[in-house]
Simulated scan of single mutants.
Amino acid sequence: MATDLPGVALDTGPAATAPHAVYQSWLDREVLAFQACGACGNAVFPPRSRCPHCGRPELGWRRSRGHAVVYSATTIEPRGGEPYCVALVDLAEGYRMMTNVVGVAASDVRIGDQVTLRFEHRDGTAVPVFGPGEEAR
């Protein structure tokens, strides 16, 4: 049983709730949640019902501090729209996620840039994005 899990423990409520629904409920409260395996100690993202590392179901919810490093980035230039950055970021807790990097020109985002968590509201849903120079939540 792993005892040194990344992130801050979160109370998840009913265990029967689908992993994505729990994740979305935390996003709605502007909390970036991820799972950590109680058996092997690895961070797990995206949410699922079994650990992809060891196959065990002992996944608990944790709060990310929101500190990340850009692993990969690309600029999307939609016809008639503003360019935006789609990036893979490595979170300090040990997992990678796809997101947008905001608050800087899309073409200025570089591999290795340190970014911090922000939330944007799109169509009534809180969406985790990252940007430079802001404290993580």
Rank of each mutant, 00 (worst) to 15 (best):
A2C: 07
T3C: 04
L5Y: 04
L5D: 11
G7P: 08
G7K: 03
G7C: 07
G7R: 01
A9T: 10
L10V: 03
L10M: 11
D11P: 01
T12D: 13
T12E: 13
T12F: 01
G13V: 02
A15D: 11
A15S: 13
A16P: 00
A16T: 12
A18V: 03
A18I: 00
P19Q: 00
H20S: 05
Y23P: 01
Q24F: 15
Q24M: 09
Q24K: 06
Q24A: 14
W26L: 06
L27P: 03
R29I: 00
E30F: 12
E30A: 12
E30M: 03
V31W: 04
L32Y: 05
L32Q: 08
A33L: 02
F34W: 04
Q35R: 04
Q35S: 01
A36S: 15
G38H: 02
G38C: 01
A39W: 00
C40D: 13
G41Q: 05
N42Y: 06
N42I: 00
A43K: 02
R48D: 08
R48I: 01
R48Q: 11
R50Q: 09
R50D: 06
R50G: 03
C51T: 09
C51M: 12
C51P: 02
C51S: 02
C51D: 10
P52E: 14
C54D: 15
G55D: 10
G55W: 10
G55E: 03
E58A: 15
E58P: 00
G60A: 14
G60V: 14
W61P: 00
R62D: 10
R62N: 06
R62Q: 15
S64P: 06
S64Q: 08
S64T: 09
R65T: 11
R65W: 09
G66L: 10
G66C: 07
A68V: 08
V69S: 13
V69A: 14
V69E: 14
V70A: 01
Y71T: 13
Y71Q: 15
Y71P: 05
A73R: 05
A73E: 13
A73L: 10
T75P: 02
I76C: 12
E77L: 06
P78L: 14
P78S: 13
R79S: 12
R79L: 14
R79A: 15
G80Q: 06
G80E: 09
P83D: 08
P83N: 08
P83V: 12
Y84K: 01
Y84I: 04
C85V: 05
A87R: 05
V89D: 00
D90L: 07
D90Q: 12
D90W: 06
D90E: 12
L91M: 12
L91E: 06
A92M: 01
A92S: 10
E93S: 02
M97C: 02
M97P: 09
M98K: 15
V101W: 09
V101T: 03
V101P: 00
G103C: 08
G103V: 06
V104C: 09
V104I: 13
A105F: 01
A106S: 11
V109L: 02
R110E: 11
I111G: 01
V115Q: 00
V115E: 00
T116S: 14
L117G: 08
R118V: 04
E120D: 11
E120H: 12
R122K: 08
T125P: 01
G131P: 02
G131A: 03
G131S: 03
G131V: 07
E134T: 14
A136K: 03
R137K: 12
R137I: 09
